[in-house]
Design a protein around this nucleic acid. Sequence first.
DNA 1: GGTGAAAAGTTTCGGCG
DNA 2: CGCCGAAACTTTTCACC
Lengths: 173, 173
Amino acid sequence: MGRRGGGPGAVTVDRVEEIDRRIVTLLAGDGRMSFTDLARETGLSVSAVHQRVRRLEKRGVVRGYAALVDYDAVGLSLTAFVSIKPIDPAAADDAPERLAHLSAIEACHSVAGDESYILKVRVASPTALEELLNQIRTSANVSTRTTVVLSTPYEHRSPGLAGPGGEGPAGQS
Amino acid sequence: MGRRGGGPGAVTVDRVEEIDRRIVTLLAGDGRMSFTDLARETGLSVSAVHQRVRRLEKRGVVRGYAALVDYDAVGLSLTAFVSIKPIDPAAADDAPERLAHLSAIEACHSVAGDESYILKVRVASPTALEELLNQIRTSANVSTRTTVVLSTPYEHRSPGLAGPGGEGPAGQS
DNA sequence: GGTGAAAAGTTTCGGCG
DNA sequence: CGCCGAAACTTTTCACC
């Protein structure tokens, strides 16, 4: 996928990928940036940028767009990380599905280590957290360990993207 | 802010807040939803919706918009949570600022518990993670505990919003 | 909060390098 | 194969009711 059919431009390090990374970075920073601005920033025409964005969406590199909400301002003032561990280690490991209906769960990561998943949750109050933990425990038959978030200095920053050779901002030396 | 000056509509449970919550929820789910669609979903006119969205942005309820990127597809295939703890508990607690320059750090949460912050990081490889951890330790004078993410069943789900009375999807009973 | 027209943005299309 | 430019259409903005 890195090279085209063998045309004259294929010898250079794919300039295509470089521009696509730029587009992804820009859209990660501002999901509503117009194609016109995107075109100015990349030096391409509006339609060329449009083509590329559609391709990135189709390839799944851009999975969607979201408004970044200040949940504090909207009544969900308590954020927490909940690590879960199956009570019966032999049981089927389908916790994500069993928990999917709980809308307070914003993310679910399968992790290495003592626990099996880390959930990020948002609720309105300590009481609501207590109730949520009960629902998590009974829904997935797990024990929980909860870490309450006190404040969030920053979030949703877009990590700089890796280059074609696997090199990135935190790439190997 | 919950009620207007005492006009005829103030006796009912603020319908204003209800519509605003709807808008926020919709935009959280699709940050590029058009004002036209937003108007249809809320039963308002396009300009009324537009007014509300601008107000929500100005109030800081909507803090911005972002493309959701599949970092795996873009070379940053390793995600991890890094909990940090100051080596010198008496030193000034300015870890967030001291770490802000590391672009691999996507989020920084101050937390209750044994450790002081949880960082979410994205890197290209185990080697890159090793280097990043060194940078974190030396930049902020902290010890680190790292939990590697194996897979992510879901992420960026928008938690249902709480109602005016503090009642929500995980509200108190 | 609604309306309507002007401005800006988007999508599509045919052709060029 | 990818990029450009212009036409057709949609969205967004703005002044006024």
